[in-house]
Design a protein around this nucleic acid. Structure first.
Length: 462
RNA sequence: UCCCCGGUAGCUCAAUUGGCAGAGCGGGUGGCUGUUAACCACUAGGUUGGCGGUUCGAGUCCGUCCCGGGGAGCCA
């Protein structure tokens, strides 16, 4: 009796009409006529809706007139070529049944465009909108694309810990992980640690890199792709407290290999979205950022600029642009400087490399000039830093010296240093902020709008 | 955390130098039409973010707090 459910996507892509079909979804809009009604049904399988025509004689037709936007229904009927304009197929309903009503007076989503700010207050319902559905499908395609890419390139997927006992990941403020309750407040710090779950301080990871390195120095090429946590009080459109980061790590590789990988990966993923998410991408190109197709085509049209930090400083000091912050060798590039390079000077992605050692992490490979390290950042117009990575210092004496120089506790890095002590190899890797990638390909300018349920400074709802 | 902008109907916004708080969309009711952001008519809907102050009179001016947005720092 019951027929298997067909998705809206499958129905719209059907090679031919079908005498019997069953679809389920949410009503996007209803239009009544004398003697019959039209429903636009969406089930999230694709951006498009399936038009349902319900004659007043159909089973369940009496309830249709009471259905509002947002209600969920099951429809059985015939998939036929549509005589109307705007769609190839429609479903001529034989029977309609209500799965769940949505009271029109209180259902927050309307048939019109809502502001992103409003939709953030109803994050549990916004995936039912065209824009957020499209964003989430593109996000999913990108995640799958990442795994496909690395599988083809011979990288092993490794799962690095989310809980870390090392506070030496060195990439920002960390969240503390504890099983102790408020009653522990009376204890001394040492007592708290000894009574806590691990018997030592535990944190949420800010980077899988230190775990990925030993794995790369065993499997050759690895990558991790998972959640990352930063407890910084960053309140910007580009930062979240919990975000996803992709971190490939390659043994027997140098900085140039690293840049090659980053560029190849980013261009591959942009092509993937253009080729495989055309309908969803079209929404962003039409309603979010009309310049998006040109921006991405431009990104693909020529190789990324590769620019030593010293030359970047030269460009910035000799240009006529008045910056709020001064530019000088030895100071880090400010947002305004990065934006100038990628958005105004070169107008395409720029890989800045060989940064001064004093503004970069201890593990980056020291260059022969004694001043710089083999670091690289991929700067993208509109986004800023999309990728940050480096060649890793594989020489034990150099690495130990740098750790000591920075006053870091050498003993805490014993296992990390072992990878240099025993069979060390040149290796390199980077971190790519996944949400920033989604922003790049959708033109969405706020990180809160490329995550289903964003966690940011002072915001933990849903 | 700092700087700037904002908060008016369910949503998006208007309201002149301080002088009767409005529109579109959405909702409800009725009509019309193989419709498609449907259309037409009628209708309901407000503690102008909270508290305090100035004034004959405050959406409008002042103080303060809350919330939202943009930018900065930090970073992916």
């Amino acid at each position: 009796m019951s027929i298997r459910r067909t998705t809206v996507k499958a129905a719209l892509e059907s090679p031919s009409p079908c005498p019997e079909i069953r679809v389920m979804g949410w009503i996007r809009t209803r239009r009544d006529a004398k003697g019959f009604s039209f429903l636009e049904l969406n089930d999230g399988s694709c951006l498009g809706n399936l038009q349902i025509i319900i004659d007043d004689t159909a089973e369940g037709a009496d309830l249709v007139k009471s259905l509002g936007v947002g209600a969920s229904v099951a429809v059985t009927g015939e998939l036929v070529a549509s005589p109307g304009k705007g769609q190839r197929y429609e479903v001529r309903a034989v029977a309609v049944s209500l799965l769940g009503a949505a009271e029109p007076e209180t259902y927050p989503l309307q048939k019109k465009r809502h502001s992103d700010e409003f939709l953030r207050t109803i994050a549990h319902l916004r995936p039912r909108t065209n824009k957020y559905g499209a964003m989430l499908r593109i996000r999913s395609a990108l995640a799958h694309g990442i795994h496909d890419y690395f599988a083809k390139e011979g990288f092993a997927l490794v799962h690095t810990p989310v809980i870390t006992g090392s506070d030496c990941e060195g990439a920002g403020e960390m969240f503390r992980v504890t099983t102790l309750g408020p009653e522990a407040a009376a204890l001394s710090a040492a007592e708290r640690v000894s009574q806590d779950f691990f018997g030592k301080e535990a944190m949420l990871t800010v980077s899988g890199q230190l775990s990925a390195e030993p794995l790369a120095c065993a499997l050759g090429r690895v990558y991790t792709f998972g959640p990352t946590f930063r407890a910084e009080h960053s309140d910007t459109s580009r930062h979240a407290a919990e975000f996803w980061m992709l971190e490939p790590e390659m043994a027997f590789a140098d900085l140039e290999d690293n840049m090659d990988l980053a560029e190849s990966l980013v261009t591959h993923l942009v092509r993937l979205v253009l080729a495989e998410c055309a309908e969803d991408f079209g929404l962003f190109a039409k309603f979010v950022d009309p310049t998006l197709p040109a921006t991405l085509e431009n990104l693909l049209a020529q190789p990324f600029v590769r620019l030593p930090y010293a030359e970047a400083v030269d460009i910035l000091t000799s240009c006529k642009k008045a910056f709020q912050y001064p530019v000088a060798f030895g100071s880090d590039l400010q947002s305004e400087h990065e934006r100038y390079l990628a958005e105004e000077h070169f107008k395409r992605p720029v890989i800045v490399y060989d940064y001064p050692k004093d503004i970069k992490a201890f593990y980056m490979r020291q260059n022969d000039d004694g001043k710089t390290v083999g670091a690289m950042d991929v700067l993208v117009p509109g986004i800023g830093e999309l990728v940050g990575g480096s060649a890793r210092e594989e020489r034990l004496d150099r690495l130990e010296a740098r750790i000591a120089e920075l006053g870091l506790p050498l003993e805490a890095y014993w296992w990390y240093l072992d990878t240099r002590r025993f069979g060390t190899v040149p290796h390199a890797g980077f971190g790519l902020g996944f949400e920033r990638l989604v922003m790049l390909v959708t033109g969405v300018t706020n990180i809160r709008d490329v995550m289903a349920f964003p966690r940011t400074w002072r915001h933990l709802e849903f």
